[in-house]
């Protein structure tokens, strides 16, 4: 009986996740690079602003926001800011094809089992988190972003008001 209760408790504790909120430090576990070998982590970008974008190739809203993210990266990506894509619960081949199809130039990590998405507390894809140079969440968008949001809400927070 005790064993059954213990197993149920373990299951509930391991499944439960409230995720992170604005002001909290974002998880920075290492993940494999989507293309090429090696790993990467949000910790690699400490000292820079990072827009973390959780996406998957099968997700229609992700396709719609990808061009806006790429344009934003081209205009604002520099030593003080980058977009960081995290391909979550997706086939790696499909993810790489997605990157090529939309010509995405910002760095991409792979979260095949969704563990990092779980640590962030995502409820689906896409989701976007603006992380400040201290690694804390400054903005959180559960859903796709567009140029209007990026220019109006994200750019003003970047170094020099996003003027690169």
């Amino acid at each position: 009986m005790l064993a059954v209760v213990g197993l149920l408790t373990f299951g509930l504790l391991s499944k439960g996740s409230s995720g992170i909120a604005v002001g909290e430090v974002a998880p920075a576990a290492p993940l494999p690079q989507l293309e090429g070998g090696g790993t990467g982590s949000l910790a690699d970008y400490r000292g820079r602003w990072v827009l973390v974008n959780f996406w998957a190739s099968w997700c229609v809203p992700c396709r719609e926001e990808a061009p806006a993210l790429e344009q934003f990266q081209k205009r604002h990506g520099n030593a003080g800011f980058t977009v960081l894509g995290i391909d979550s619960r997706d086939l790696s081949g499909d993810g790489r094809a997605f990157v090529r199809r939309y010509g995405l130039t910002y760095p991409q990590l792979r979260d095949g089992d969704g563990a990092t998405a779980h640590d962030f507390g995502t409820t689906g894809v896409p989701e976007n988190y603006l992380i400040d140079p201290d690694g804390k969440v400054r903005l959180l968008v559960r859903g796709p972003v567009n140029e209007e949001y990026l220019d109006g809400e994200v750019a003003p927070l970047l170094p020099g008001g996003g003027q690169s």
């Binding site: 099968w58 997700c59 619960r89 997706d90 086939l91 089992d113 969704g114």
Partner: peptide, 18 residues
């Protein structure tokens, strides 16, 4: 993995890719 059900029962876009 996204649906949380057996693959044979799932018809989501992710399941179709899988």
């Amino acid at each position: 993995p996204v649906c949380g059900t057996l693959l044979e029962l799932a018809e989501s876009p992710q399941a179709l890719r899988e």
